[in-house]
Design a protein around this nucleic acid. Sequence first.
DNA 1: ATAGTCTTCCGCCAAG
DNA 2: CGCTTGGCGGAAGACT
Length: 376
Amino acid sequence: MLNSRSYIGKGNSVTVRRAGSFWAQNARQTSFPPSEAEVAEDAARQPIDVVIVALSSASLMNLFGPAEVFARANSLFPAPVYRVRIISAAAREYPTSFQVTLTAESTYREFKQEIDTLLVAGGLSWQSPLRNSETSQLLEWLRANCARSRRYGAFCTGGMMLAEAGLLHRKRATAHWSRLEEMAARYPDVQVLSDRIFVRDGNCYTAAGGSSAIDLALALVEEDLGGEVSLEIAKQMVLFLRRSGTQPQLSTTLLSQTSQIGSIGNLLVWMADNLDQDLSVSQLARRVAMSPRNFARHFVREVGKTPARHVIDLRLEAARRNLAHARLSLGDVAKASGFGSVEVFRRLFTKTFGTSPGRYRDRLENVRASVPARHF
DNA sequence: ATAGTCTTCCGCCAAG
DNA sequence: CGCTTGGCGGAAGACT
């Protein structure tokens, strides 16, 4: 088993285990804190070159969210692990969302350095690229450099640019939920997945954009440096929870929070936080001081589905999150998600997702394995 | 796999 | 009168 040393933690022997990780080359069991020689060795190591290409539509979140994740990783080690550069897909001075103009280190044309991880950042103001020489130069550059890089990916509508360049050919990919239909229609050779916040297919990564750009960056850091490091970064950034790629873009929980309709709106938030409680129609009705009949009627009108269905959706969503924790047994997952029994949990899960909880977890673990090793 | 029990949903109706 | 509310009962289906 390959190990990497960790500079995090107060214990005596904190190790980060990760096959094929950034540290794989000279992997060995190490202790915490690392010895002086080990620190020196890490400090001398070449950083990983992360290049973020900012399309003219790029949103700030897609640029700086991931950049911050990599920068935080650097702060955990004696020398930078990542060298992050943001380069422009157009002029050096380029507009972003919200009227903020940025000056990039260089444009893609001038950029000649190594690229380990190439990421294309888009935004919602993206428009289908015109088929002119300007565009074809960028597409050509993307094709050449993605082929050279260890891995490449995109945030939000950046994925459209990759698809336009043919770099998502026959790959599974995603984009912002509002652009998924357009993506599927425009690029029929791409297998567009709608229920993910990010998708990895081989060494190609696509994220929905917005905060999921951060989730994808954390996943990349986890591949390189292990889960302990990415979790530490998530903690530093005060992320409520670190999400796996398989979370739906528009979650039941999130939609609950956007419903601001009187007492039901508050109840929806409370429900999402109290999945272990009795969420029967009669109990819910009591919480909002309505008769069960009247409550059910209001609920359907305002939420668009019946109370019981909503409870099931919330619990299944929690179950999908909980299934990502390999340590929890299926019984624990069922309990933590508020299901009365494993049998009930299994039946509902299978009926809704077409696959049993066990198989679903197996698939999660398969997706995580087989990371392309970094070439030194 | 099955049968008995419980819960949910929804149309209907009367009361406020 | 128009609209909302709450109770009833049966059908569907979920649970044990």
